[in-house]
Amino acid sequence: MPPRILVFAGSIRTGAFSGKLAACAAHELAQQGAEVTRIDLGDYLLPLMNEDLERDEGIPQNALRLARQIAGHHGFLVATPEYNHSIPPLLKNALDWVSRVKRDGERPLRPFENKVAALCSSSVGQFAGIRAINHLRAVLVACGVEVTSVQCSVGHGGEAFEEDGTLKDERSRKTLTKVAQSLIFHARTVAALETN
């Protein structure tokens, strides 16, 4: 059985470099045999994380929907942009809300439990989102996610992609291939645990 991999970007801006990179990653994962689901965080918009809101109104439905998506896959790949040397608020807020999900109705739900993630980043500058990807890694590790060591960062995002959305740079393409290989390898281990 092929591992199930969820892919999403940390930005919902039209033409976002992270969205283009997520599309490249989804294609590469599928080429290597993964069962890929691509989602858009714009379909899971959430209020700012607030424990008073959680207490008074409960977990927002979109947080529960996103938690179900993550829980339903063996691993996930996030492509993040860099905002002020860190991850964007949209992505951080989504992860914070999902980390609060403990139940789905009557049954327990731990969306990040036994999950593996791979990370990619992109930016307009030469640093390619490296600072953001390091912050994202720290957040996911804090949530209990195993994060693969192989990562792909694409700089000068405005010139990095062909008109068809593929990466121009051969080095970036090869790195993305390695990211996909590593994620699939680790996700297969998760899948094997699921069947035992």
Results as ranks from 00 to 15, higher is better:
residue 1 M to E: 11
residue 2 P to E: 00
residue 6 L to E: 11
residue 6 L to V: 09
residue 11 S to K: 03
residue 11 S to C: 06
residue 21 L to F: 08
residue 22 A to S: 15
residue 22 A to E: 11
residue 23 A to T: 15
residue 24 C to F: 09
residue 24 C to D: 08
residue 25 A to N: 06
residue 27 H to G: 01
residue 28 E to R: 05
residue 30 A to Q: 14
residue 30 A to T: 08
residue 32 Q to S: 04
residue 32 Q to H: 02
residue 33 G to S: 06
residue 33 G to N: 04
residue 33 G to V: 02
residue 36 V to G: 00
residue 37 T to F: 05
residue 38 R to Y: 06
residue 38 R to N: 06
residue 38 R to L: 15
residue 39 I to F: 14
residue 39 I to N: 12
residue 41 L to G: 07
residue 46 L to H: 05
residue 48 L to A: 05
residue 51 E to G: 05
residue 51 E to S: 13
residue 53 L to K: 07
residue 53 L to D: 13
residue 54 E to T: 08
residue 56 D to L: 14
residue 57 E to K: 15
residue 58 G to F: 13
residue 58 G to H: 12
residue 60 P to N: 09
residue 63 A to H: 12
residue 65 R to Y: 14
residue 66 L to E: 10
residue 68 R to F: 12
residue 69 Q to C: 15
residue 70 I to F: 10
residue 73 H to V: 07
residue 75 G to W: 09
residue 77 L to D: 12
residue 78 V to R: 00
residue 78 V to K: 02
residue 82 E to W: 07
residue 84 N to W: 10
residue 91 L to E: 05
residue 92 K to F: 04
residue 95 L to W: 12
residue 95 L to D: 04
residue 100 R to E: 10
residue 101 V to M: 07
residue 101 V to R: 11
residue 102 K to T: 15
residue 103 R to K: 15
residue 105 G to A: 12
residue 108 P to Q: 10
residue 109 L to A: 10
residue 109 L to N: 13
residue 113 E to P: 03
residue 113 E to V: 01
residue 113 E to T: 03
residue 114 N to Y: 14
residue 114 N to P: 04
residue 118 A to V: 01
residue 120 C to R: 03
residue 120 C to Y: 06
residue 121 S to I: 00
residue 122 S to V: 07
residue 124 V to N: 09
residue 124 V to I: 13
residue 126 Q to P: 13
residue 129 G to M: 01
residue 129 G to Y: 04
residue 132 A to L: 01
residue 134 N to R: 05
residue 135 H to W: 04
residue 136 L to A: 00
residue 137 R to I: 02
residue 139 V to A: 06
residue 140 L to N: 00
residue 143 C to A: 15
residue 145 V to M: 00
residue 151 Q to A: 10
residue 151 Q to E: 13
residue 153 S to D: 09
residue 153 S to P: 01
residue 154 V to M: 11
residue 156 H to R: 11
residue 158 G to R: 06
residue 160 A to Y: 06
residue 163 E to W: 00
residue 165 G to E: 08
residue 166 T to I: 00
residue 172 S to W: 07
residue 173 R to P: 03
residue 173 R to F: 06
residue 175 T to Y: 03
residue 176 L to G: 09
residue 179 V to H: 10
residue 179 V to C: 12
residue 181 Q to I: 01
residue 183 L to N: 08
residue 184 I to R: 10
residue 185 F to W: 14
residue 190 V to W: 05
residue 190 V to C: 09
residue 190 V to H: 08
residue 192 A to G: 10
residue 193 L to E: 11
residue 193 L to W: 11
residue 194 E to R: 14
residue 196 N to M: 11
